[in-house]
């Protein structure tokens, strides 16, 4: 089976798993991984739309490359902030960070 629907279904599932992970997981690293899942779902969408609907352009590939690069930058910043928080709390469980109540 090689159709657009299948790819869209997979990316929708990936996105939902990522969103559930962001909301349910309590470890900061796991939340970051879940966010990466959501970004990858968007990348997959771009690639699938590019391949099946406008095959003569390369917009999807370019987008995916940029998303990967930017996600790496994001992970670097996020991990450095996590490290700063870890020095304070000695834990990366988000339940321990409860000074602020939004």
């Amino acid at each position: 089976m090689n159709s657009l629907t299948l790819y869209l279904l997979i990316s929708a599932v990936l996105f939902s798993f990522g969103l559930i992970g962001v909301m349910m997981r309590r470890s900061l690293i796991a939340i970051l991984v879940s966010i990466e899942l959501m970004l990858n779902a968007a990348s997959l969408n771009f690639m699938a739309f590019n391949k099946f609907l406008s095959p003569d352009t390369s917009i999807g590939q370019i987008y995916t490359l940029f998303i990967m690069g930017i996600a790496a930058a994001e992970a670097a910043i996020a991990l450095s902030i996590f490290l700063a928080l870890f020095r304070q709390l000695r834990s990366i469980n988000i339940e321990r960070a409860r000074e602020l109540r939004g």
Binding site: L32, E74, A78, I81
Partner: peptide
């Protein structure tokens, strides 16, 4: 730091 973590996530 906690505010920063919440903001970036």
């Amino acid at each position: 730091k906690e505010a920063g973590v919440k903001y970036i996530l």
